[in-house]
Design a protein around this nucleic acid. Structure first.
Lengths: 113, 113
DNA sequence: TCCTTGCATTGATTGATGTCAATGTATACC
DNA sequence: GGTATACATTGACATCAATCAATGCAAGGA
């Protein structure tokens, strides 16, 4: 998912039927967020110094094994919610605010009827 | 989940650590949205006439069995995203915009740094 | 070159989830 | 009462997901 435009779920009066394919794309974004560990990871990264964090810090904070944390980070990166940058031995992660905004926009209620 | 306040994941500079319990609550909201069928259901209900729809309409539109649709609707109701009202033999569902707003607020980026 | 460190990947296991067919239940109509 | 309709629930099954221990890999330092 690379910053694509997502169809709002709710609550536009005009009703393009929201095909299955589009529903799958929208749901994929939510699926990446549908785990407590990943929610914590996003929060940890976004509040870290300089807006970035390495795996070592995150592993310590979550109480999960290093392999599991790496797994969750991979899911978040593939969903476009985090970016990864390798500097030397360390891998630094940052949030991609636009991706979060895009997903949030899916839930927007522009016109409260 | 009854319209509770959810801690933002991102991107507040102040960093209350986001405990595991709170992360579970936030993730629960996303989990309810993490299925294409449920995304389609929300969209169908929100764009239906008078903002409400019965199971019969939804079953026809989704191409899933009636039991499966009922199952997904239950998940959405328990997550607080839909409300159910029984009128006679029919069950009518409506979206709960405040619940969607609350979840969207979790992803807000109030202060872009 | 060898060892250490930080991270990614793999394999196995356990538990959660989506789906359907079948059944249950309540309401409405004859 | 009996039957049909609309929905909910249950049981079974197959697939997916989270987790860990173990292993692999690349970069840095001795």
């Amino acid at each position: 998912m690379e910053l694509e435009v997502l169809t709002p779920i709710c609550c536009s009066s005009s009703a393009p039927p929201l095909e299955r394919d589009e529903a799958v794309r929208v749901a994929a974004g939510f699926k990446a967020l549908a785990d407590p560990a990943r929610v914590q990871l996003l929060h940890l990264v976004s509040t870290a110094d300089a807006g970035e964090a390495c795996v070592c810090d995150l592993t310590a904070a979550l109480g999960l094994s290093q392999g599991t944390v790496s797994h969750h980070l991979k899911i978040l990166v593939e969903a476009g919610l985090l970016s990864r940058e390798r500097r030397g031995t360390w891998a630094w992660y940052r949030v991609v605010p636009e991706a979060l905004t895009a997903i949030a926009g899916t839930l927007a209620t522009p016109e409260r009827v």
